[in-house]
Nucleic acid binder design. Structure first.
Length: 553
RNA sequence: UGACCCAUGGUGUAAUGGUAACACUACUGAUUUUGGUUCAGUCAUUUAAGGUUCGAAUCCUUAUGGGUCAACCA
């Protein structure tokens, strides 16, 4: 293996740590809060954390940051586990911050005993008012100087449920004038008489993020705790708590979260799209969620490839969704089974075709020698795509037109002889003759044509519904526009074709198979399919050089 | 009116004091029984000004621009 690729900044840190002997193996973790579904940004973090311990000795834990019972649910835990597995990663340990509530409680008592934490009785509003601003120092709470004994007794009573929600908090005693707002006596514990999805009603006090995350890292002996840049100010508190608690020194490193254009990746916003029914659910194929991408037909491999290509760094970024599409096309091109489906049919009659029907062979995938072939029924009447015929074609139009010849994919070369129209002048049928010696694989005609069309035999065609998806938003960065981000939803993000005509082989399609509908795009069966009613989702279209040509005029 | 983070083609990421590169996009052309794929090629980059140095994208200073921080969220 030639390891020529340059390292990202985290790999550099790790290689340095390994070389210096600071660690002999590394431990990372992926720490989702179970209050929403994973999205493409999380996928990036998953690939990073798990990828690092695939590359270097060590392992990765999956740890749910479940310290806020009000917003967290088991449904989310299950979906997150499924998504991580689907992406192709295996965690060493499945952990929950709630596993550590006893430890965390003991840590809190230790801090109280060291006179580094106190119980505060002021209200949330008062606390906000006394916090100061980034440019002005805060003020000490009148309860800041309670004795160790009093703090201890009060905190135990908080735990025992003697006080109502919001009436008291446990705060670290640091410095209300600290330049870092997070060091101004941050709250460690708050009272919430709420049912927790795992610990039930055992607790009525719950630790805050800052008093749970770093401590959980430490308990698990995480060596490299990787998070996004907005946590940079938290690092000082992270280190302070580890130092005062005298526990295993995990370290936090930050990278810039990945943004992708024409979508949003904020759990709050995605939740809104779901609850306000702008999409059909978390796994709507238009959603940037892992489950949405899965339903859309993206492969785990293509998502991993994407995350790999966008890399990791510390600067603001806006990744072009075109790269994601490139990655999925690249993979699907290699694995998708080729099939023919006519979306907008135009009847074509081959006047000199006298057989009842015949079976023709077509390769399943020209990119895969071992992909095999399938039979396709051919007959006198077929459907072609309406826009594959033009009565008065422009220059460089390689498709069918009066007097012109094209090849029918895997079949014969035909020549257009006659155009039938209705009273309005709409073309309702085209009549052609075929060249018997031009059959695919046995072509002795010596004729070469520019265009090849896909087609489906009229009497053999099966019906299907097709769902075409486009980007969810009309603008690159909906969050950056004036007003509500939902004003920028793309009204044409979903187009349903209720009845298209497909070749018979598609009748036995499964959810796992990937298809390329020739000249149309990549498709996957949707779970809405019922017996007798096929539904396909378009994962992504093919690159379309002709469409570009037409656009240019 | 503070602290912290960041700044390389249209986009993303490299170059670790020594020829600014790779991928995507765009554009040419060739091949092609998918106007797909594949192949060949073209356009295009160091925020600015000073300084250090034989030599700076890289180190220093200042400026500019963008981002983050004042939830009993994570």
């Amino acid at each position: 293996m030639s390891e020529e690729r340059s390292l990202n900044f985290l790999e550099e840190i790790i290689e340095e740590d390994l070389k210096s002997g600071r660690y002999t193996r590394i431990i990372t973790r992926f720490p989702p809060e179970p209050n929403g579904y994973l999205h493409i940004g999380h996928a990036s973090s998953i690939c990073l954390n798990f990828g690092l311990t695939q590359k270097y000795p060590g392992y990765t834990n999956l740890r749910f940051d479940d310290t806020n019972p009000v917003t967290e649910e088991t449904e989310y835990v299950e979906s997150i586990k499924e998504d991580v597995k689907w992406l192709g990663f295996t965690w060493e340990n499945e952990r929950y911050a709630s596993d550590y509530f006893d430890n965390l409680y003991a840590f809190a008592l230790k801090l109280i005993d060291k006179n580094l934490a106190y119980v505060d009785d002021i209200t949330a509003d008062e606390m906000a008012a006394m916090k100061g601003t980034p440019t002005e120092p805060g003020k000490n709470s009148p309860y800041r100087d309670r004795s160790v004994e009093e703090n201890r007794a009060l905190f135990i009573r908080m735990k025992n449920g003697e006080f109502p929600d919001g009436s008291r908090t446990l705060r670290a005693k640091i410095d209300m004038a600290h330049i870092n707002m997070l060091m101004r006596d941050p709250i460690l514990y708050r009272i919430k008489h709420a049912h927790h999805h795992r610990t039930g009603d055992k607790w009525c006090i719950y630790p805050m993020y800052d008093f749970a995350h770093g401590q959980s890292d430490s308990i698990e002996e995480i060596t490299h705790s990787i998070c996004t840049m907005e946590f940079i100010p938290h690092r000082e508190l992270y280190d302070w708590l580890i130092e005062k608690l005298e526990i295993y020194p995990s370290h936090q490193y930050e990278f810039a979260r990945r943004n992708i254009n024409y979508t949003v990746t904020s759990k709050r916003k995605l939740l809104q799209l779901v609850t306000e029914k702008h999409v059909t659910g978390w796994d709507d194929p238009r959603m940037p969620t892992v489950s949405g991408l899965r339903r859309r037909g993206y492969t785990p491999h293509s998502i991993r490839e994407f995350c790999d290509r966008i890399g990791v760094a510390k600067r603001e970024n806006m990744v072009d969704v075109g790269l994601l599409e490139f990655c999925v096309r690249e993979h699907l091109n290699k694995i998708a089974l080729r099939r023919m489906v006519v979306f907008d049919p135009l009847k074509l009659v081959i006047t000199n075709y006298t057989q009842e029907e015949e079976m023709l062979l077509s390769e399943n995938n020209p990119e895969d020698e071992n992909g095999g072939v399938r039979d396709i029924p051919f007959s006198r009447e077929i459907y072609i795509e309406r826009d594959d015929f033009m009565e008065n074609p422009p220059k460089k139009y390689f498709r069918l037109a009066p007097g012109q010849m094209v090849r029918l994919k895997s079949a014969y070369i035909i020549k257009c002889e006659e155009v039938i129209k209705d009273q309005e002048g709409q073309v309702t049928e085209v009549r052609c003759t075929y060249i018997p010696e031009s059959r695919s694989g046995a072509d002795t005609s010596g004729i070469s044509v520019k265009g090849t069309l896909h087609w489906v035999s009229v009497k053999h065609a099966i019906r299907s519904e097709i769902r075409l998806y486009d980007r969810l938003f009309r603008v690159e960065d909906p969050t950056d526009e004036a007003g509500d981000f939902k004003e920028y939803l793309n009204p044409d993000s979903l187009q349903v074709l209720p009845e298209v005509y497909a070749e018979p082989a598609l009748a036995t399609a499964t959810l796992e198979e990937r298809f390329q509908f020739i000249r149309k795009g990549y498709f996957v069966l949707d779970r809405d399919t019922q017996s007798g009613k096929l539904v396909f989702n378009r994962t992504v279209g093919l690159k379309d050089a002709w469409a570009k040509e037409v656009k240019k005029g």
